[in-house]
Computed example of a mutant assay.
Amino acid sequence: MGMSVTISAAGEQDAEQILKLQYLCFQSEAEAYGDYAIEPLTQTLDELRAELESGCVMVARLGTEVVGSVRATVDADGTARISRLCVHPRLQRHGLGGRLLAAIEARAASERAPKRYRLVITAHRSEGNLRLYRKYGYTAVGTERDRQVTLTEMTKEAPKEAFATSA
Protein backbone atom coordinates (compact mmCIF):
# COMPACT_ATOMS: atom_id res chain seq x y z
CA MET A 1 0.00 0.00 0.00
CA GLY A 2 1.38 3.42 -0.96
CA MET A 3 1.75 6.38 1.35
CA SER A 4 0.07 9.69 0.77
CA VAL A 5 1.74 13.08 1.06
CA THR A 6 0.66 15.14 4.06
CA ILE A 7 1.16 18.86 4.58
CA SER A 8 1.77 20.37 8.01
CA ALA A 9 3.64 23.11 9.83
CA ALA A 10 7.38 22.58 9.95
CA GLY A 11 9.25 22.23 13.19
CA GLU A 12 12.86 22.73 14.20
CA GLN A 13 13.42 19.00 13.70
CA ASP A 14 12.71 19.51 9.97
CA ALA A 15 15.42 22.12 9.41
CA GLU A 16 18.12 19.82 8.01
CA GLN A 17 15.75 18.02 5.65
CA ILE A 18 14.31 21.34 4.42
CA LEU A 19 17.78 22.74 3.75
CA LYS A 20 18.86 19.61 1.85
CA LEU A 21 15.66 19.64 -0.20
CA GLN A 22 16.04 23.34 -0.94
CA TYR A 23 19.61 22.76 -2.10
CA LEU A 24 18.51 19.92 -4.38
CA CYS A 25 15.52 21.78 -5.84
CA PHE A 26 17.28 25.05 -6.60
CA GLN A 27 20.18 23.45 -8.48
CA SER A 28 18.24 23.66 -11.75
CA GLU A 29 17.57 27.39 -11.21
CA ALA A 30 21.25 28.00 -10.50
CA GLU A 31 22.24 26.06 -13.60
CA ALA A 32 19.70 27.84 -15.81
CA TYR A 33 21.07 31.23 -14.77
CA GLY A 34 24.72 30.25 -14.36
CA ASP A 35 24.65 31.56 -10.79
CA TYR A 36 25.34 29.13 -7.95
CA ALA A 37 25.38 31.93 -5.36
CA ILE A 38 21.59 32.34 -5.27
CA GLU A 39 20.19 32.61 -1.74
CA PRO A 40 18.54 29.17 -1.57
CA LEU A 41 21.96 27.60 -2.20
CA THR A 42 23.88 29.77 0.26
CA GLN A 43 21.48 29.79 3.19
CA THR A 44 22.92 28.32 6.37
CA LEU A 45 21.22 25.94 8.76
CA ASP A 46 21.23 28.63 11.46
CA GLU A 47 19.50 31.09 9.10
CA LEU A 48 16.85 28.51 8.28
CA ARG A 49 16.31 27.75 11.98
CA ALA A 50 15.74 31.48 12.58
CA GLU A 51 13.10 31.48 9.81
CA LEU A 52 11.38 28.50 11.44
CA GLU A 53 11.12 30.49 14.67
CA SER A 54 9.93 33.77 13.16
CA GLY A 55 7.71 32.89 10.20
CA CYS A 56 5.31 30.35 8.77
CA VAL A 57 6.96 27.31 7.24
CA MET A 58 4.99 24.41 5.81
CA VAL A 59 6.32 21.05 4.69
CA ALA A 60 4.99 18.19 2.63
CA ARG A 61 5.91 14.75 3.95
CA LEU A 62 5.94 11.34 2.38
CA GLY A 63 6.19 9.20 5.47
CA THR A 64 8.95 10.86 7.47
CA GLU A 65 10.71 12.37 4.44
CA VAL A 66 10.26 16.09 3.75
CA VAL A 67 9.47 16.27 0.01
CA GLY A 68 8.24 19.84 -0.25
CA SER A 69 8.48 23.14 1.57
CA VAL A 70 7.33 26.76 1.43
CA ARG A 71 7.67 29.82 3.70
CA ALA A 72 5.87 33.07 4.40
CA THR A 73 6.30 36.13 6.54
CA VAL A 74 3.74 38.89 6.91
CA ASP A 75 5.16 42.40 7.13
CA ALA A 76 3.74 45.48 8.84
CA ASP A 77 1.82 46.65 5.76
CA GLY A 78 -0.08 43.34 5.57
CA THR A 79 1.86 41.74 2.74
CA ALA A 80 2.52 38.01 3.07
CA ARG A 81 5.84 37.36 1.36
CA ILE A 82 5.92 33.79 0.13
CA SER A 83 9.26 32.25 -0.71
CA ARG A 84 11.25 29.12 -1.42
CA LEU A 85 8.42 26.93 -2.66
CA CYS A 86 10.11 23.68 -3.61
CA VAL A 87 9.06 20.12 -4.35
CA HIS A 88 11.37 17.13 -4.67
CA PRO A 89 12.04 16.54 -8.39
CA ARG A 90 10.58 13.03 -8.30
CA LEU A 91 7.23 14.41 -7.06
CA GLN A 92 6.93 17.46 -9.30
CA ARG A 93 3.97 17.83 -11.69
CA HIS A 94 1.54 16.04 -9.36
CA GLY A 95 -0.12 19.10 -7.79
CA LEU A 96 2.03 19.23 -4.67
CA GLY A 97 3.34 22.73 -5.36
CA GLY A 98 -0.22 24.01 -5.58
CA ARG A 99 -1.17 22.24 -2.37
CA LEU A 100 1.79 23.80 -0.57
CA LEU A 101 0.97 27.25 -1.94
CA ALA A 102 -2.66 26.96 -0.80
CA ALA A 103 -1.50 25.69 2.62
CA ILE A 104 0.91 28.57 3.25
CA GLU A 105 -1.71 31.12 2.16
CA ALA A 106 -4.25 29.56 4.54
CA ARG A 107 -1.77 29.46 7.40
CA ALA A 108 -0.74 33.09 6.89
CA ALA A 109 -4.42 34.08 6.71
CA SER A 110 -5.29 32.26 9.91
CA GLU A 111 -2.34 33.65 11.87
CA ARG A 112 -1.78 37.14 10.52
CA ALA A 113 -4.64 38.09 8.12
CA PRO A 114 -2.60 39.52 5.22
CA LYS A 115 -4.11 41.96 2.74
CA ARG A 116 -2.09 40.60 -0.17
CA TYR A 117 0.36 37.88 -1.11
CA ARG A 118 3.67 38.55 -2.85
CA LEU A 119 6.18 36.27 -4.55
CA VAL A 120 9.55 37.23 -5.97
CA ILE A 121 10.72 34.34 -8.09
CA THR A 122 13.46 33.51 -10.56
CA ALA A 123 10.91 32.51 -13.14
CA HIS A 124 11.33 34.50 -16.30
CA ARG A 125 12.82 31.33 -17.81
CA SER A 126 10.58 28.97 -15.84
CA GLU A 127 7.21 28.92 -17.59
CA GLY A 128 6.02 26.00 -15.43
CA ASN A 129 6.51 28.05 -12.26
CA LEU A 130 4.75 31.06 -13.76
CA ARG A 131 1.86 28.85 -14.89
CA LEU A 132 1.45 27.46 -11.35
CA TYR A 133 1.31 30.91 -9.76
CA ARG A 134 -1.09 32.26 -12.40
CA LYS A 135 -3.35 29.25 -11.80
CA TYR A 136 -3.56 30.28 -8.13
CA GLY A 137 -4.46 33.89 -8.96
CA TYR A 138 -1.08 35.62 -9.02
CA THR A 139 -0.25 38.23 -11.63
CA ALA A 140 3.16 39.54 -12.63
CA VAL A 141 3.61 43.14 -11.54
CA GLY A 142 7.26 43.75 -12.33
CA THR A 143 10.79 42.48 -12.64
CA GLU A 144 14.08 43.35 -11.04
CA ARG A 145 17.66 42.36 -11.69
CA ASP A 146 19.75 40.61 -9.02
CA ARG A 147 23.28 39.83 -10.22
CA GLN A 148 22.77 37.60 -13.31
CA VAL A 149 19.16 36.77 -12.56
CA THR A 150 15.96 38.57 -13.53
CA LEU A 151 13.41 38.19 -10.73
CA THR A 152 9.68 38.32 -11.42
CA GLU A 153 7.41 39.84 -8.78
CA MET A 154 3.89 38.42 -8.63
CA THR A 155 1.05 39.42 -6.31
CA LYS A 156 -2.57 38.70 -5.53
CA GLU A 157 -5.02 40.26 -3.15
CA ALA A 158 -6.16 38.25 -0.15
CA PRO A 159 -9.88 37.48 0.02
CA LYS A 160 -11.66 40.39 1.73
CA GLU A 161 -12.88 38.21 4.60
CA ALA A 162 -9.28 37.23 5.38
CA PHE A 163 -8.34 40.76 6.50
CA ALA A 164 -11.68 42.39 7.29
CA THR A 165 -11.32 41.72 11.02
CA SER A 166 -7.79 43.14 11.12
CA ALA A 167 -8.61 46.38 9.27
Results as ranks from 00 to 15, higher is better:
115 K>Q: 10
53 E>W: 09
137 G>M: 02
55 G>D: 14
96 L>I: 12
101 L>D: 07
97 G>Y: 04
144 E>P: 05
93 R>Q: 09
87 V>H: 03
69 S>A: 06
61 R>Y: 01
51 E>Q: 13
141 V>G: 01
105 E>S: 00
125 R>H: 10
124 H>P: 11
60 A>R: 00
107 R>F: 09
130 L>D: 11
129 N>P: 09
132 L>H: 00
155 T>C: 10
101 L>T: 09
70 V>R: 05
59 V>N: 00
86 C>P: 01
68 G>Y: 05
93 R>H: 08
62 L>P: 05
131 R>Y: 15
154 M>C: 06
99 R>P: 09
123 A>S: 07
69 S>R: 04
108 A>G: 08
112 R>P: 11
87 V>P: 04
156 K>Y: 03
79 T>Q: 03
113 A>C: 15
153 E>D: 13
146 D>E: 15
123 A>L: 02
114 P>A: 07
114 P>K: 00
95 G>Y: 04
97 G>D: 04
68 G>T: 03
82 I>S: 01
71 R>F: 06
112 R>A: 15
54 S>A: 15
148 Q>V: 13
147 R>P: 03
59 V>G: 03
96 L>A: 11
99 R>W: 13
81 R>L: 13
107 R>T: 12
53 E>R: 11
151 L>V: 07
100 L>K: 00
146 D>V: 05
138 Y>T: 05
156 K>M: 08
72 A>S: 04
56 C>D: 15
111 E>F: 04
90 R>M: 11
110 S>K: 14
66 V>K: 00
65 E>F: 08
67 V>A: 06
56 C>G: 12
117 Y>E: 04
85 L>K: 02
75 D>K: 07
70 V>G: 07
137 G>D: 00
50 A>E: 12
154 M>Y: 01
117 Y>L: 07
122 T>K: 12
103 A>P: 05
116 R>S: 00
129 N>Q: 14
115 K>I: 12
97 G>Q: 02
84 R>K: 10
136 Y>C: 04
69 S>K: 03
85 L>V: 03
54 S>V: 12
